[in-house]
């Protein structure tokens, strides 16, 4: 059984951009091993909230603790090496082979031994063939590239994964595949994962807890089942209504056929 990921605690966390308050005094406890989805419309503050955890964005006020450590007590680059980070635009290094892209975290940490084995292991983990290792990023499809993005984030065995719309730019089939596979990985590796998405259907499928954000605040905090049963606020209901209506439409179509 792998060591479970850390718990996360946010206290009155705020971030201002000029006069705009992107994140507004958010307090939150995320237990170890949770898979939490942050859902909201564009500009609701969900990405800003996520990026404050690995200090890509510095909070205006408030504190963040990972386990029992405050994130600002550690050098930003040291902190980030302990956290897996996957985002929509992937950002593979175009001048490095896939193998070096995957192992870059190990290279930064100065881990010299066992790199090749680890690369092979990670390619297996994200279900890509071994011969990918020697290719360059531009020879891979978008879905393959994001699999590498996930493998790269997992290379240093982080307990915490932060994912910012990780599968948002992929085609629906690939996206569905990856979502499912990531869910399995999360459980297998005992990670704590926070995933930002604007797609409620994805969140409902993937997460064991869903946070609905609007105007920099968390308007709903519920399990998928609770969300679907209603009574968790109108913001959440508005987002849930979309997949619900789609599903109803599909069922109706099926009955006609």
């Amino acid at each position: 059984m792998p060591v479970p990921g850390p718990s996360i605690s946010l206290r009155e966390l705020s971030r201002d951009y000029g006069t705009v308050r992107a994140v507004d005094s958010v307090s939150l406890e995320i237990p170890a091993g949770a898979l939490v989805a942050l859902v909201g419309l564009s500009g609701s503050g969900k990405s800003t909230l996520l990026k404050m955890i690995n200090r890509l964005v510095e909070p205006t006020s408030g504190t963040i603790r990972i386990g029992d450590e405050a994130v600002d007590s550690i050098d930003a680059h040291v902190l980030r090496r302990r956290i897996g980070y996957v985002f929509q635009n992937i950002g593979l290094f175009p001048h490095m082979t896939i193998a070096r892209n995957i192992a870059i975290g190990l290279e930064l940490a100065g881990e010299m031994t066992g790199r090749d084995e680890r690369i092979a292991q990670l390619l297996d983990l994200v279900e890509l063939p071994q011969e990918m290792a020697s290719r360059m990023p531009d020879q891979l499809s978008g879905g393959q590239q994001q699999r590498i993005g996930v493998a790269r984030a997992l290379a240093t065995r982080p307990g915490l994964m932060l994912m910012d719309e990780p599968f948002g730019a992929l085609d629906p089939v690939t996206r569905d595949n990856l979502t499912e596979q990531y869910k399995a990985l999360h459980q297998k590796l005992g990670l704590t994962t926070i995933i930002v998405t604007h797609d409620m259907a994805e969140a409902l499928y993937l997460a064991d807890r869903i946070l609905v954000m609007e105007g920099g605040q968390i308007k709903a905090d519920a399990t998928p089942a609770q969300l679907l049963s209603g009574n968790v606020g109108e913001e959440a209901e508005a987002l849930v209504a979309i997949p619900r209506a789609q599903a109803a439409h599909l069922i109706a179509l099926g009955k006609q056929a």
Partner: peptide, 14 residues
Amino acid sequence: DPAVAEAADGLGMT
């Protein structure tokens, strides 16, 4: 590419 720069930061490069 800003995405590449963000990845570099996110991975913990100095």
